[in-house]
Design a protein around this nucleic acid. Structure first.
Lengths: 115, 115
DNA sequence: TCTATACATGAACATATATTCATATGTTGA
DNA sequence: TCAACATATGAATATATGTTCATGTATAGA
């Protein structure tokens, strides 16, 4: 189809769209955003931008049960967004890398721009 | 709680975390990411980074039914991520603003970094 | 006006997901 | 070893969400 011609940009290149879109990467990308797509997890990540926090403090801060928070932390861990550090009985969680803040900020810019 | 002291960063400032976290903004943020959190919608957005496209071409490109694509386009429209342009019987969709690419790219960086 | 085409939308169904409850695991101190 | 505490996890339930099917709306051309 000639009307599918690509204006090349570096996003297109990165996902290799000029040939076949790299379906696998796009799937992973949607899985990543799915993790950000829950208010509890967003609140956890946001809280952790201020520094590490243990599970009970997170639960208090979010006014939620410890179990619910633990379940969400597991999802965040699996996605490589947070990292646990054990100290005795308590486990402190922190953001895994700088990308997390960047992703939050890029979304935030969009939100604030649309008001 | 004194252990909740904030190391100020501009994300924290933006969401006003040093006082009460702005729950409403965080909720909107999660709603935004939820829209990105589906592989069909990601594929639509990615296709549109190359330029505007009509519904049927999108459906062909994704190898999906027209109805499914239309439903997803509605969600993308509501979120302010894509914009329709009618031309006769066909409707062309394009990315609504530059933020969309930025969000996709920030997520992509994380994905590619973790391989 | 009638038909064909492009797109939108409501209802239904199947699947995914978040929270709760109960319980398990792991660590500390007596 | 036992009790207390912090966290993790499995099962169950309620809710949300994506796709399909059928149908509605809008535009163009005969």
């Amino acid at each position: 189809m000639s009307e599918n011609k690509i204006k090349k940009g570096h996003l297109c290149d990165a996902i290799n769209q000029s040939e076949e879109p790299n379906i696998e990467v796009l799937y992973d990308l949607s899985e990543l955003f799915k993790v950000f797509g829950d208010s509890t997890r967003i609140r956890i990540l946001t809280a952790l931008t201020a520094g590490e926090m243990c599970v009970l403090h997170l639960a208090e801060h979010l006014e939620m049960g410890q179990s619910a928070v633990s379940h969400q932390l597991r999802i965040l861990r699996s996605a490589g967004l947070v990292r646990p550090r054990r100290s005795g009985k308590t486990v402190f969680y922190s953001l895994d890398d700088a990308h997390v803040k960047e992703i939050l900020e890029s979304g935030l810019e969009h939100i604030l721009h649309k008001r």
